[in-house]
């Protein structure tokens, strides 16, 4: 195994270590998307009765949103943890490693990709036991891939903020960013039913494509036409925020 891969794996290990050794700390983040899904469908479930709603059941429609939220929270948490590492001096140790800065970033981000599967899994178990339709293994695999990508993008975004502000007090900024990006989409209702202003935003928001990519298997069949925009949107998001984060790493100490 090359040194770069070993470094990434070791940093991933450290990220996962935190979940395993302080499980209590991870519980709110794991539960939150499920609570949100249950709450939203309890409150707004009757919205599925609207004409032109594309799912029979509001829960089925909203489960993919929860999966994305899990990824968003995880990404934001990665930034908060990094800010903590900066405050406590651990980040200096990371920066003292001779590895390329992009490799160090990849190590930090990769753990977010893995961690985001935890809230999603919990959410899906609850959802299926409550009667949400089984979307098929292919759709779930695609969903997993897409939320891992989104977690990576969110982690890079939060990393940019952590490197910029260097304090955990920037946490709300990291959370608000992912919150807005995921909900200002077709989160609640199909595009046609959004109010005009929100439809305009959702059309511009690349996360809408990611959401539709995850959702397609839950409300119908997986098609290439719904999949490639999701992949392109993710590539763009990861590319943009990844580049900004690497730049932030390289500029440390200036």
């Amino acid at each position: 195994m090359s040194g770069d891969l070993r470094t990434i794996r070791a940093l991933m290990g450290r990220g996962l270590n935190e979940i395993l050794r302080v499980p209590g700390g991870a519980i709110p983040g794991v539960l939150a998307p499920t609570i949100f899904m249950l709450g939203l469908s309890a409150a707004f479930g009757k919205a599925a009765a609207l004409p032109n709603f594309t799912a029979d059941d509001f829960r089925t429609f909203i489960v993919p949103v929860g999966m994305l939220q899990g990824a968003g929270f995880t990404g934001a948490a990665t930034g908060v943890n990094l800010a903590r590492d900066i405050e406590q001096g651990w980040f200096d140790r990371l920066m003292l490693a001779p590895a390329r800065r992009s490799v160090l970033l990849a190590g930090v981000v990769a753990s977010a990709c893995l961690r985001c599967l935890l809230p999603a899994t919990f959410l899906l178990v609850v959802a299926f036991s409550l009667g949400v339709d089984w979307p098929g293994v292919g759709a779930l695999a695609l969903g997993a891939l897409l939320i891992m990508g989104l977690a990576a993008a969110a982690a890079c975004y939060a990393t940019v903020l952590a490197l910029r502000f260097r304090t955990q007090q920037a946490a709300p900024l990291m959370q608000v960013g992912t919150f807005v990006a995921i909900l200002f989409t077709t989160a609640y209702v199909p595009r046609e039913l959004l109010s005009d202003w929100l439809r305009a935003i959702a059309d511009l928001n690349p996360v809408t494509h990611v959401l539709e990519g995850v959702r397609q298997g839950f409300i119908g069949d997986v098609t290439w036409a719904q999949t490639w925009p999701a992949l392109v949107a993710l590539a763009g998001l990861v590319g943009l925020f990844g580049a900004l984060a690497v730049r932030g790493m390289r500029r440390q100490g200036r």
């Binding site: 707004f44 009757k46 919205a47 009765a49 609207l50 709300p172 608000v176 919150f179 807005v180 909900l183 200002f184 989160a187 609640y188 209702v189 039913l193 959004l194 109010s195 202003w197 929100l198 935003i201």
Partner: peptide, 23 residues
């Protein structure tokens, strides 16, 4: 955050579920 999160949530709810008043 005390007002920020509810404001954003309000915006999403209104923008997404406006049509439900016709239910």
């Amino acid at each position: 955050p005390l007002v920020l999160f509810p404001t954003l949530f309000l915006a999403v709810n209104v923008g997404g579920l406006e049509r439900t008043t016709s239910l």
